[in-house]
Design a protein around this nucleic acid. Structure first.
Lengths: 346, 346
DNA sequence: ATGAAAGCGCTAACAA
DNA sequence: TTGTTAGCGCTTTCAT
């Protein structure tokens, strides 16, 4: 099996410590520490010797000890939002991937958690903060006017929001995607294709994200002197809601195209079209939002607005670095522009 | 703003320590420690006093210190597999959610990482092991005959695999889903619907998972004395591959139904049917695997085999607990049964 | 440029 | 039942 014979006793070998390395290199523990954290301080031949010893022993500094001493964990906390079945469900997965990657490059790992009590903003965060388990958080659902951000700001816990602040008074750093620019691009694209009656299916008014995305649609139509009245619908983010809304709009306003606040709603429109024997992209155009796997693999393809989540993650980690390193209390915002991915539905 | 006036100087308050609690409760530090870890040792009134002090100060034990002392991190490492665009992409996201939840209930958090070098099995794992950053790993892609598991077993690092061992000699604990049972259920379902020529679209022969799933299909057909010859295809896990395979099979073998190794391939079949004006569920039946969001929201709905990922996570965490707590080197396996979710495509 | 001493906050072992 | 002592492995003074 190629198993190291020294391990046959099932006693997991204690990993080498700084002292072990020091002994091998013939220097003091402190010099090894400096070789790791302040290599400039060492004479080059000493540094060389220490590095050889480190390689030879396969030494990595013990995290717990380093964390205790430096009061930092090099961990970034991310609370998972509940998994929603029956939706296109796109953003979180891609974002998590992007964040893990961006974090690694900055020397951080991502600690995932969830709240046992979703109604309590502090749930989950609380214990991690008090036990100094993470250096900072990424908060992803600020758009709900959510109390997490308020709680964290109040507790002086470093965090960066994915999403614009819910109130002008909030001063934390944030990164967000310009939803209005996305739906504006979608609407322009449809106008270019010759559509003039373009409907909107979005979320209820209490969703700032929904209102942002809707604004791009209405703004673009108004700029061309085209009507929006009677062409908009606000519903829950469910396939059936999108389906029903599309049905009502088709009956009452005869749109030739739909722009939707999510791929989930857009799939609802596709359902409605299928029921009526209308062909997406030929009889009626449809654009979704998020470029979910669903949009990518549905027959014909669903045109969709794709958020630059990789870039979002990079910018978030940048801000995290400033917050943690220089102990800055406040930070800047960044609004990134999404991109329209055109497929068969338009 | 409701901000605590004591914090206006921007000096984040140092969290209370064991000593602080001890002082407030009028006991020694050790007694506080016992109140936390061995409450049975304390007289009930002392315990009461200590708990009151803990609540009053909002104390949580410092993780780094506890980790250093106990040589445990209460962290479970999970390496993210690269995000595959253009596929149904279902399992990982749901599994991560389930694992986070199951872990929390066992007092663990999930640390996410990715390898900077995907070709190196140790990449990412290596440093986490040596720095004792995690107590154990969950390895998710053992089916590739993957070297991670071999590396970890060789290094005596505790881990549980989601997936059966790649070799009989492997003795690590594992949890897996009985893919053959899933495709057998799918095939039986199609037989019940009156289909007799049922085709298979799966992965290349070097994928044990693919072969497992394929076995359920062929076994079920053979049991009914029905043919499989010329009805099977092995391709890449891509929508276009599924589409092409379905085209060839329809032309050459005239199946009335398809069972697929993934929702991605099943979507490919739906593409092919759409191109030919065939209606899924009426003219030709299709069953996918994974019950991805795509299967749930595609117009008409895609019948699919759903893995019990919540249960997988629970069982994995159970085994993790044994491994970590009692330092057992080896563990048991568990094979869970998936469930067929019937939708419009069949 | 290198080394010695101290201590981060906690818990295991032992003493009282 | 409670308190005392020691030390986990590291980095931050400070001295050399």
């Amino acid at each position: 099996m190629g198993r190291d014979p020294h391990r046959v006793l099932d006693v997991p070998p204690a990993p080498p410590t700084l002292a072990d390395v020091a002994a091998v290199a013939g220097v003091s523990r402190q010099t090894v520490s400096n070789a790791l954290n302040n290599p400039a301080l060492l004479r080059s031949d000493t540094l060389e010797r220490v590095r050889a010893a480190i390689d030879q022993l396969g030494y990595s500094p013990n995290r717990a000890a380093r964390n205790l001493r430096t009061r930092a964990s090099h961990l970034i906390g991310l609370r998972l939002t509940p998994f929603a079945e029956g939706t296109a469900n796109a953003t979180m997965d891609r974002f998590v991937h992007s964040l893990v990657q961006a974090s690694r490059q900055a020397g951080y790992h991502v600690l995932l958690f969830d709240g046992d009590d979703p109604t309590d903003p502090a749930s989950g965060y609380d214990e991690l903060v008090r036990s100094t388990a993470v250096d900072a958080f990424v908060v992803t659902d600020t758009y709900r006017g959510n109390p997490q951000a308020a709680y964290l700001e109040d507790a002086s816990v470093p965090f960066v929001a994915f999403g614009r602040p819910w109130t002008p008074a909030a001063l934390h750093p944030w990164v967000d995607v310009d939803g209005a620019a996305g739906t504006a691009a979608a609407t322009s694209h449809l106008l270019d294709r010759g559509h003039e009656r373009i409907a909107w299916i979005g979320w209820r008014k209490d969703s700032p994200i929904g209102e942002d995305r809707r604004a791009g649609w209405s703004r673009t139509l108004h700029a061309r002197g085209l009507p929006t009245t009677g062409l908009a619908s606000r519903v829950e983010d469910l396939v059936t809601s999108g389906r029903e809304a599309a049905g009502v709009l088709l009956d009452e306003a005869a749109p030739t195209a739909f722009v939707c606040a999510s791929d989930t709603l857009a799939m609802g429109v596709l359902h409605q079209l299928a029921e009526r024997g209308l062909r997406p992209g030929h009889d009626v155009a449809v654009v979704g939002f998020d470029d979910s796997p669903v949009a990518q693999v549905v027959p014909g393809g669903l045109t969709s607005v794709r958020q630059p989540l990789e870039e979002v993650a990079v910018q978030i980690v940048q801000r995290l670095g400033k917050l943690i390193g220089r102990r800055e209390r406040f930070g800047s915002g960044a609004l990134l522009t999404p991109r329209l991915v055109v497929r068969g539905s338009s």
